[in-house]
């Protein structure tokens, strides 16, 4: 008869192995640690900032006056037009105590409804040369109502013979 005095060692080894495997499994399956990058916090902060800035640009400084944003959109190509909207938007976003928050970039678009009912989107400001389309951007929007005759001469298929509601869209990102 073979001496079976060693079987206990085998069983202990198997048990220890199982326990280790189980522990590793539980640890890996439960403690996938999120990095702050996964948590969308910078996106949330950026979106709030962009929305605040658009809302404040759409608030007239005095009762009954036209808001800055409406003025910019009405006069898309001229001075105080799309590029100034973009400029003013970024200036407001960068504002903080102390130095400016310099690494913010933005790109403004205008969405409008054509006479055939389809919706088109056109750039409102000149393209940011560094914009590749792969940035992690947030999109903030604001409704603007325009009277007859605006926006002035751009883009061609915007109906200017009737009052209309258009959507100002701004992509905002950090680079």
């Amino acid at each position: 008869m073979v001496n079976d005095g060693g079987q206990l060692y085998t069983m202990e080894g198997v048990a220890a192995g199982l326990i280790m495997l189980l522990t590793a499994y539980i640890v890996i399956s439960t403690t996938s640690v999120y990095t702050p990058g996964d948590t969308h916090i910078p996106d949330m902060q950026l979106e709030q900032l962009g929305n605040d800035v658009l809302a404040m640009m759409d608030t007239p400084d005095r009762d009954g006056e036209e808001s800055q944003l409406v003025g910019f959109v009405k006069n898309v190509t001229g001075p105080c037009g799309g590029n100034d909207l973009w400029d003013e938007f970024l200036d407001n976003c960068k504002m903080r105590a102390g130095d400016e928050d310099d690494n913010l970039h933005a790109q403004a678009y205008l969405s409008y409804r054509r006479s055939d009912g389809s919706v088109d989107t056109t750039p409102l400001s000149s393209e940011d040369p560094e914009f590749t389309g792969r940035e992690n951007t947030v999109r903030v929007t604001r409704w603007v109502q325009l009277p007859v005759g605006s926006p002035s001469d751009m883009p061609p298929d915007v109906e200017t013979t009737r009052p209309q509601a258009v959507l100002v869209e701004v992509l905002l990102w950090r680079a």
């Binding site: 902060q45 709030q48 900032l49 605040d52 800035v53 404040m56 407001n92 976003c93 504002m95 903080r96 105590a97 102390g98 400016e100 928050d101």
Partner: peptide
């Protein structure tokens, strides 16, 4: 760019932050 009002301690690294344009 001009600080109007401020209260609280000096900022350490790793603080939570939000900025509201008003």
């Amino acid at each position: 760019g001009v600080l109007l009002n401020q209260t609280g301690d000096t900022l350490p690294p790793g603080y939570g932050y939000i900025r509201r344009v008003v």
